Amino acid sequence: MALTRLLELLERLDEAHLQMLDLAALKKQTIMDNKVDGLIDIMNRESKLMKLIGQLEEQRAEAAFTFLQGVGIRSNLNLNLTELSRLVFDPEDKSRLQQVQQKLSNTLHRLKKANELNQKLIEQSLTFIDYSLDLLVGRPNQDFTYHHPSDKGYSSTRPGLFDARG
């Protein structure tokens, strides 16, 4: 019974993470289209999903503890699913647990990749905005000719976008 509850919670966690993956794809397109209002809406939806995932994770931990008590382990061990599956002796239950584990692992991996891509897109957008502002506004007392840094007449109050001296 405790294992069934744990499996149900793992399935629900996978579903919630799949929804996050859908939002990540939507976020990617919104970033590329430069739609700030859409991005804010997506982030609000992500926040609600993260709250749900946090609640499901708490319930999963409780179900795992209940399962451990059911198999005779009284301490509150924080076992991962692989370690937990070693305590399941029914081949059908063990197989189901391993399938859910693999499915959740794949979903989390895909979500991680999508989030990394979105982070890079946002960084590129911010870099482009900074560069565009430099082009539009310019730097104070900007001279458009080359001066060697050791020349006395050369002075820049703000390093350029590609200043490698950092």
Score class of each variant (00 low, 15 high):
residue 78 N to C: 01
residue 102 Q to Y: 09
residue 87 L to K: 08
residue 66 T to R: 07
residue 84 L to D: 07
residue 99 Q to I: 09
residue 82 T to A: 14
residue 72 G to T: 01
residue 103 K to T: 09
residue 100 V to Q: 14
residue 100 V to H: 05
residue 78 N to L: 04
residue 99 Q to A: 14
residue 81 L to K: 00
residue 102 Q to A: 07
residue 96 R to S: 13
residue 103 K to S: 14
residue 79 L to Y: 13
residue 74 R to T: 05
residue 102 Q to N: 08
residue 73 I to T: 11
residue 102 Q to S: 08
residue 87 L to M: 02
residue 74 R to V: 01
residue 90 D to E: 15
residue 90 D to M: 07
residue 71 V to K: 00
residue 105 S to T: 12
residue 79 L to W: 09
residue 89 F to D: 14
residue 77 L to G: 03
residue 92 E to W: 06
residue 80 N to R: 06
residue 70 G to N: 15
residue 76 N to P: 00
residue 74 R to G: 03
residue 67 F to D: 01
residue 91 P to I: 09
residue 81 L to A: 13
residue 70 G to V: 08
residue 88 V to R: 10
residue 94 K to E: 14
residue 104 L to A: 01
residue 70 G to M: 05
residue 66 T to C: 02
residue 89 F to I: 11
residue 89 F to Y: 11
residue 86 R to H: 13
residue 69 Q to M: 00
residue 74 R to Y: 03
residue 67 F to Q: 05
residue 69 Q to K: 07
residue 91 P to L: 04
residue 78 N to I: 10
residue 64 A to I: 10
residue 68 L to D: 08
residue 101 Q to E: 10
residue 67 F to H: 02
residue 84 L to W: 15
residue 98 Q to F: 08
residue 98 Q to V: 09
residue 91 P to F: 11
residue 105 S to N: 02
residue 101 Q to P: 00
residue 89 F to P: 01
residue 105 S to V: 00
residue 82 T to F: 13
residue 80 N to I: 04
residue 91 P to Y: 15
residue 66 T to I: 00
residue 92 E to D: 12
residue 77 L to A: 13
residue 75 S to I: 04
residue 79 L to V: 06
residue 65 F to N: 06
residue 66 T to W: 04
residue 78 N to T: 08
residue 99 Q to T: 10
residue 67 F to N: 06
residue 78 N to Y: 05
residue 101 Q to I: 05
residue 77 L to Q: 14
residue 69 Q to V: 00
residue 88 V to N: 12
residue 84 L to G: 07
residue 105 S to L: 10
residue 104 L to C: 01
residue 68 L to M: 11
residue 65 F to E: 12
residue 89 F to C: 01
